[in-house]
């Protein structure tokens, strides 16, 4: 058997984060959030009405996920700040 990590997180293109394997979902107080299934889809577009879980709203919002490879080379100009 090949060695596979205990947990995987898949960046679904323009969709949620798919979390598989051994994981624990905790709220800000450290209390467990029941995932209710082995694999969960976590909202990435911010529009879900059942956060932290995905409800498909990204399709209505036509959410465009950033290119995951771009995140490895951050450029300060890519992070506009509000005027002070």
């Amino acid at each position: 058997m090949s060695a596979t990590p205990g947990t995987s997180i898949t960046l679904c293109p323009h969709g949620p984060l798919l979390v598989r394997g051994d994981f624990e979902l905790l709220d800000a107080m450290g209390l467990t959030v029941d995932p209710r299934r082995g694999t969960v889809a976590l909202c990435r577009c911010g529009g879900s009405l059942i956060k932290p879980f995905c409800d498909g709203t990204h399709k209505l919002l036509e959410f465009q996920a950033p290119d995951p490879t771009a995140a490895r080379a951050p450029n300060i100009d890519d992070h506009p700040r509000s005027p002070t």
Binding site: P16, L18, R36, A41, I50, F53, C54, D55
Partner: peptide, 14 residues
């Protein structure tokens, strides 16, 4: 189904 199928659609399509 709102919650489960948001997971399933990713698994089923890909």
């Amino acid at each position: 189904h709102v919650e489960a199928d948001a997971v399933h659609e990713q698994i089923a399509a890909r």
